[in-house]
Design a protein around this nucleic acid. Structure first.
Lengths: 134, 134
DNA sequence: ATTAAATCCGAGTACACTACTGGGAATTAG
DNA sequence: CTAATTCCCAGTAGTGTACTCGGATTTAAT
């Protein structure tokens, strides 16, 4: 289990925000629905806001809403905002020097894994999740 | 970076074992080549042995060799032996109850990720790594 | 203006897990 | 017998995750 609660809670949260289309949704609602502490959820949601995926309205009847249409929000962006990176090893991290070297056999494995994850998450949007039948 | 040193060192180690085809290779050799402590490497290698990927010869001139031909050793088996599991979340772990439910939207994401990793690692053998040109 | 609902912000903390170190026993080739 | 090697078990420092807590700021409604 290498995805943290940040990502797991955060993904559920942005999904809820997307589904609550008409008006901003308060964190309280999401927190109690998913039994997450409000304080913790605040910290998580801040990561999504920092990366420009959601925007906030303060004061009563405030809350959060999507910053762009759900078909333009990629699951990859969400995970990167929340988790930071999903690279299996440091050596396939974006700005790692090892990327330039081909001398390491195992690097090949990690790169393939990383690429396949990227393929999945960068071709899946929040809208895809919202459109899913349950 | 969600693959532990166990997996990273262990993968390098089994690669070395594979490349040293003629006779068993001593851990000492691998440990000093890759600057890993012998004690730690012993613990890692034990995981590979437990899962029947390598076998050992004790005493002088002893060491480790592959338990089967490298084209029958899948990278997936190696990683599972070392890491335990590469599932992004508990809910896509093999024996998790959530597998049966379809009620969770985010589950869909995790399953896709997990499947794509499986696709990569279960179609790559140790031989593929050994055959790679450097 | 006051109140209350909400976001925003920063500090602190318990626990689990990773990445080791160390000591010593068992096996076996020469 | 000796030395090289695997095997086995116990401990431990440090890191990171998953939170809790307290309070400041903004703003709609009365």
């Amino acid at each position: 289990m290498w995805l943290s609660t940040k990502t797991r809670y955060g993904l559920k949260a942005i999904y809820e925000i997307g589904m609550h289309e008409k008006s901003p949704i308060a964190l309280n609602t999401i927190a109690s629905k998913h039994e997450i502490s409000l304080s913790y959820l605040e910290q998580i949601i801040a990561l999504l806001k920092k990366d420009g995926l959601i925007r906030s309205t303060r004061g009563p009847h405030g809350g959060y809403s999507l910053a762009k249409p759900p078909e333009k929000i990629y699951v990859g962006d969400i995970i990167r905002a929340l988790e930071g990176s999903y690279a299996p090893t440091e050596c396939v991290e974006e700005n790692d020097l090892c990327n330039l070297r081909t001398s390491c056999v195992t690097h090949y494995v990690y790169k393939k894994i990383n690429d396949s994850i990227t393929e999945v998450v960068d071709h899946m949007t929040l809208k895809d999740l919202m459109d899913q039948m349950l």
